[in-house]
């Protein structure tokens, strides 16, 4: 079973993603960027779901650090964010996210497909 790291400060959202992915993947949750970076280095996941609006260090910064880390650089990172203004998608993909999903998650299959696609590609 693949491990997915979920970096999300909102507990409700963590619970929701957990509920959706339960049984399919092993979920490791982190609340903040620094916490997540530390955890990721010791426990390399197969994929990262990353919120952007994180307190302190925001998602783009976390991504930058992941990409800087030799061990983590190849891990697929999917932005899961409520930043859904037009133009946001392009902006995030440009910054190096492998995919971009908006909250609210209206259709969970979208999330599942995106995860499956990234994991298959990487293996």
């Amino acid at each position: 079973m693949n491990t997915i790291a979920l970096i999300e400060d909102n507990a409700d959202n963590r619970l929701l993603v957990q509920a959706i992915l339960e049984g399919l993947y092993e979920i490791v949750e982190y609340e903040t960027g620094p916490e997540a970076l530390a955890g990721l280095r010791s426990n390399r996941p197969d994929l990262v779901l990353l919120d952007i609006s994180l307190p302190g260090m925001d998602g783009t910064e976390v991504l930058r650090r992941i990409r800087e880390d030799i061990n983590l650089a190849q891990v697929p990172v999917i932005a899961l964010t409520a930043h859904a203004m037009s133009g946001d998608r392009e902006r995030f993909l440009e910054q190096g996210f492998d995919d971009y999903l908006t909250k609210p998650i209206v259709d969970e299959s979208v999330l599942l497909d995106a995860i499956a696609k990234r994991l298959v590609t990487d293996e």
């Binding site: 619970l15 929701l16 509920a19 609006s53 409520a82 909250k103 609210p104």
Partner: peptide
């Protein structure tokens, strides 16, 4: 506003 409105909606719709 967009962001802040979406976040709770995420929980509402998702759950």
């Amino acid at each position: 506003m967009s962001h802040e409105l979406r976040t709770p909606l995420n929980s509402v719709i998702g759950f």
